[in-house]
Design a protein around this nucleic acid. Structure first.
Lengths: 252, 252
DNA sequence: TTCGATTTGTTCGTATGTATT
DNA sequence: TAATACATACGAACAAATCGA
């Protein structure tokens, strides 16, 4: 086992539709088709890749399920964007205790560039000393502060990222990444715990020092499971909750 | 618009594969095919429903994606069970802060039957005064108490549910529901918040009274989104976290 | 408004490959 | 080995939505 022949076997063993899927994903990662744009039609892709249209559809199916692409009958297939309302709540899980879903209002509280420290290394696996940008962002719901995000992004992917870009953006942060830097967040992984936040954060969220908050460590990924953003959030759960719904879709 | 004809249209407009999917789900809910058993082969179903085998596969696809059915090449398609290790972590989201996944050890702390109270009504929509069973269950990881579950189930679905059945079960609670009462949990919805647990619970979890815990309200559903269990959990997040991963599957 | 071209959605059928028993 | 079952791939035909002439 573990002979070169075997490795070749494994690669060759992948079904055709997965090869096609891989090619499409690679084109997306390369920015060949940009968010909001239509990718070539199924029949065009079929000709281009020299496979049947059914194989193309099979390849696209999973990308649609993963919310990377969006199909529209009669129009085409489009690269998903973060500007649509319905995709927003795929990454934003805070709801009112009465079940209400509300659009958060964002407020930039801080921005600076520095070097990755030991904490970044242990928590997120960043290389110590590499350049990062730190963003502190507050989300308000119904006028009240509910979520405080401390965001860390490696600057190599986000060239010339600065405070005014962040402050003057329209739409969500992931929408900014997407429109301005071509970085498309397609998946997140979050780890939640209960803790007492630092005093400054408690003050921002309007929490007494004896009140706990929900702490979240998030890693956001783009295509091919490449991490692009690290985030530590504190949520005031006096009037709100974190919704983990597995899962809304499909008929069951 | 909005004529009766239009309504009929909408019902008739459902594609064939969705009708088939609905029939399969109905058969599952009726207990026609039981967890662990194989459902009829695709060719048999195709003959039975008088549709092509491709339509059958399309119908089953979504049920497999929803973890209601499991396909095995060369063997058949089976009704998912809660006895398999890999399905366990689909409903159990507590992991070590070092990322370790561990099998919890269960300990029954309390069992009683009573009437649904006002809290059940507001939190879960149960009819006040209906019969319910209350179960208090502790989960230990690495020998230490980490999760305390207060479980409420309406007894109508679980006839002759008693303490010894619960205590002497093998495997998970959902495995018990499935094997003994024919109730197959296929989906859960959870709402998380940070709070100070009641003193008795803090004591069980080994928390000082000034230490917060993660509170979870869970509703578990069987086929057709029918709720079957209500649960309030407290998690000691000193050494563990709640993992929300959207999501592992698919190539991306 | 109508019509036709384009694109995705549904359904069918066939052939072949691969895993299991 | 043979039979069975799911997996992959191809193609055809028609339906439904969209868009512009």
């Amino acid at each position: 086992m573990d002979t070169p022949a075997r490795i070749t076997d494994n690669l060759a063993a992948a079904p055709l539709y997965r090869e096609v899927q891989w090619k499409i994903t690679r084109a997306l990662a390369a920015g060949e088709w940009k968010p909001g744009e239509a990718i070539p039609s199924e029949s065009q892709l079929a000709r281009q890749f020299k496979v049947s249209i059914g194989t193309i559809r099979r390849a696209i199916d999973e990308l649609v399920a993963g919310r990377i692409l969006v199909r529209q009958q009669g129009r085409g297939t489009f690269v998903a964007t973060h500007t649509e309302d319905r995709t927003l709540f795929y990454f934003f899980h805070v709801v009112g205790k009465d079940g209400s879903r509300e659009f958060p209002v964002s407020e930039l509280l801080g921005f600076r560039k520095e070097r990755a420290d030991a904490d970044d290394e242990t928590q997120f696996g960043l290389v110590r000393g590499s350049r990062v940008a730190r963003v502190r962002n507050l989300l308000k719901l119904a006028g009240k502060p509910v979520v405080l995000d401390d965001i860390t992004v490696p600057t190599e992917r986000f060239s010339r990222l600065d405070e005014s870009t962040f402050r003057n953006r329209e739409g969500t942060i992931y929408g900014l990444y997407q429109a301005r830097y071509g970085v498309n967040v397609v998946r997140i992984s979050e780890r939640l715990s209960a803790a007492h936040p630092p005093a400054d954060i408690a003050a921002i969220l309007g929490l007494r020092i004896d009140q706990p908050a929900l702490q979240i460590r998030r890693v956001a990924y783009t295509y091919n499971d490449t991490p692009v953003e690290y985030r530590r959030s504190w949520i005031n759960t006096s009037d709100h909750e974190y919704l983990s719904d597995l899962w809304k879709s499909a008929a069951r």
